[in-house]
Simulated assay, not measured.
Amino acid sequence: MKPIHKTTAAITVLAAASLGLAACNNKADDATEKQADAVEQSSDNAADAMHDEADQMTGSAADAMDAKADAVKKAGEAKSDALEKKADNEVAQHPQ
Rank of each mutant, 00 (worst) to 15 (best):
M50H: 03
D44E: 10
A46H: 02
C24H: 06
D30S: 13
Q56L: 12
D48N: 14
S42T: 09
A36I: 03
A62T: 07
E53S: 12
S43L: 00
M50N: 06
D37Q: 15
Q35I: 04
A46P: 00
M57R: 09
T58M: 09
A31C: 00
D55E: 07
G59P: 08
G59E: 09
M50K: 15
N45F: 10
A23I: 08
D37T: 12
G59Q: 06
A47S: 10
D44I: 04
K34I: 01
A31N: 06
E33W: 01
A62G: 06
H51M: 10
D55S: 08
A54Y: 01
C24N: 04
A22R: 10
D30L: 14
Q41W: 03
H51I: 09
S60M: 14
D48P: 00
N25R: 13
D29G: 04
H51V: 09
A49V: 08
A23P: 01
S43A: 12
Q35N: 11
K34N: 09
A38R: 02
A31E: 13
L21Y: 02
A46G: 01
D37A: 15
Q56H: 12
Q56K: 14
A61S: 14
M50F: 14
T32M: 10
A36R: 05
Q41Y: 04
Q35C: 05
K34E: 10
L21Q: 06
A61R: 14
A47F: 13
S60Y: 12
N26D: 11
N26E: 08
E40K: 15
Q41C: 05
D44H: 06
A49W: 07
A31R: 15
A61V: 08
A46E: 13
A31Y: 07
A47M: 06
A36D: 05
A49M: 13
D29C: 03
T32L: 05
G59N: 04
E40R: 12
S60Q: 14
N26V: 03
Q41H: 11
V39D: 02
D48G: 09
K27G: 00
M57G: 03
A61N: 06
C24Y: 02
S60A: 12
E40P: 04
A54W: 05
K27S: 06
A62F: 00
D55P: 02
A46Q: 13
A62Y: 01
A61W: 01
A23E: 02
A46I: 09
S60L: 15
A31K: 15
A49P: 03
N25Y: 11
D48M: 11
D52R: 12
A36M: 01
M50Q: 13
A61H: 07
D44C: 00
D30M: 11
D37L: 13
T32N: 01
N25T: 12
G59W: 04
S42Y: 00
V39G: 04
G59R: 03
L21E: 06
A31L: 09
Q35G: 01
S60R: 15
D55Y: 05
A47K: 00
A49K: 15
E40Y: 03
E53F: 03
